[in-house]
Design a protein around this nucleic acid. Structure first.
Lengths: 324, 324
DNA sequence: CTGTTAGCGCCTTCAC
DNA sequence: GTGAAGGCGCTAACAG
């Protein structure tokens, strides 16, 4: 059995109130008593029970973070930064992963609520009609990342549409005549929230190439790629995220297709591991650290002061590599 | 204010005890009452307060996980697997990062204790004399990964010594005459627990090459490498982890040194991203998923039954790439 | 079957 | 300065 405030009180022949005052320096207390109490607390190895404190105070000092998984370096970096920032502000991280499953996601949210997190940072894939209402009903500070859920819920992100438009313009300016655009299935929109994906696609769609564009949005994008003669038309393959671009690079290398002389490739996200990849991938970069910092900052402010959280648009830029 | 069991009791004109019975189906209760209670609970949007439950039950259903950071893919994969496994068993993950700082590590452990986690999974860098005692004093199930803390604390890992010995033997058999062994500073042993690192180094030391070996264990290992004529003696560079090998590959590519014809390179860990790296790195592989699964499995068993947790040695194997 | 009640460990108000 | 006591929300033992 762990040692409690009562044990200390008994050992020191004082009341629990006095122990509390000594331990948390509140109110006035006779110095020698305070010393005695602190000493015996230490001697007994007292560790305050935060669960009890949380129950009493109605605050857990915990931020719930729900993301898809940790395979994508974007999320592991993000959480890494958030954890540091949260610790600075004396918050703790509760982590849950949804693996892109909207039922799991709802369970994760409910669990966070049951665990009384003070605020929630959510990367959602849920596209149910009243999901935004359902979320707001819990009435705790909430921030969405990755996919926007509704205009009424704060959202921190790059401008995916503009960023992808810039990317498409960039490859166009490089003299490519045909873009093959590779994306996870846009048909997921019937079952999932794929806001960011759609934004990127829309941005891409705003640029017209001399020849037609080809959209590949199948899970089997490599097989689709095989059906196309990519050596025609001065072609570039624009990928909606780096992890797709890496697979494409592997495919092209296997086919002995030269990059960039025969085909160009461009990614999106600028994940860390790119620095080990050859040829260096041209990609769209944005500061993940900043997203994490702003998210923790905003949510902790909202927890402590009922401030409304502002949407934030993170700046992006194009990183010139050697892949086009 | 969130809705509580008492609100439901009042709304249904029953006692809190009855509501509890209905909600958690314990004991006997009149079916129509139960229905009414469940219905109003739903209507009011009742969500049980797990903090209160935890306080009462003395169990939080939470496993604390403390690792170095999430940059190394080993840890992000590990946590990914653990989260899935923990969810299956109805446990929740509390995550904290130490960034290799032993004071932060101690604070993380203390925080976990204060938060009353039911069990703790720890990757430690602390080498203080009585650290093992200090940990055991908290008297909760504990498992160490990565670095062993003491023989009295369960440890799950590959046999790092044997695995690195096998790696060294493997390169030796390939006909290399000189090994350059690259490792994080072994001098850290005065300030940190670097058990795994030392084990790997010892394993390496058991193999004798025709010519001498060179040990580089500086943070600036790339600069050290520059002072060596690596084209002599048919040399192989054996790295204590893949993330070092990746840096070495980048260096060699920059110097236009051909791999493996001029110099061989070998890594350790077989992290996921290797599949995008050229040339394919020869490395030592072991199932991270299994480490995660066993850790969660053992700790949950220990939480629920006071079983003693067994040490587990994970099997390793060498993955033949094209880098030597 | 159901109501009452006593805590879990902590914080906080109110008296003295 | 200090003690006594109530209560956060839930569970469980005990009555009835």
């Amino acid at each position: 059995m762990a040692v409690t405030i009562k044990n200390i009180a008994d050992a020191c022949n004082v009341s629990r109130g006095t122990v509390d005052r000594a331990l948390n320096n509140r109110g006035k207390i006779k110095p020698e008593k305070k010393e005695l109490i602190l000493a015996t607390a230490k001697k007994l190895g007292y560790k305050p029970n935060y669960i009890a404190r949380s129950l009493k105070k109605g605050k857990t000092n915990t931020i719930g973070i729900i993301v898809f998984n940790l395979y994508n370096e974007f999320f592991s970096s993000l959480i890494n930064y958030m954890e540091v920032k949260a610790k600075e502000k004396d918050y703790h991280i509760d982590l849950a992963l949804t693996h892109y499953d909207k039922d799991i996601e709802k369970k994760c949210v409910e669990n966070m609520i049951k665990r009384q997190v003070d605020g929630l940072i959510l990367c959602s894939v849920n596209n149910e009609k009243d999901y935004s209402l359902w979320l707001q009903n819990f009435n705790i500070p909430l921030i969405t990342l990755a996919n926007k859920v509704s205009d009424r819920i704060p959202y921190i992100s790059v401008d995916n549409k503009l960023a992808m438009k810039d990317a498409a313009q960039f490859v166009h300016n490089k003299g490519y005549n045909r873009i093959i655009y590779i994306s996870p299935p846009l048909a997921y929109k019937s079952t999932h929230n794929i806001y960011a994906l759609k934004q990127r696609f829309e941005g891409f769609s705003q640029i017209n190439m001399e020849h037609k564009s080809i959209i590949i949005d199948s899970k089997d994008y490599i097989r689709e790629l095989e059906t196309i003669n990519i050596l025609e038309h001065k072609t570039v393959i624009l990928c909606s995220s780096d992890i797709y671009a890496l697979e494409v690079l592997n495919y092209l290398k296997e086919k002995k297709i030269k990059i960039p002389s025969q085909v160009g490739v461009m990614g999106f996200d600028n994940i860390n591991m790119l620095k080990y990849i050859e040829p260096h991938l041209t990609t769209v970069s944005y500061p993940i650290e900043q997203i994490g910092a702003i998210a923790i900052d905003s949510i902790s402010k909202a927890i402590e002061s009922d401030d409304k959280i502002q949407n934030v648009v993170i700046k992006h830029k194009i990183i010139q590599g050697e892949s086009l």
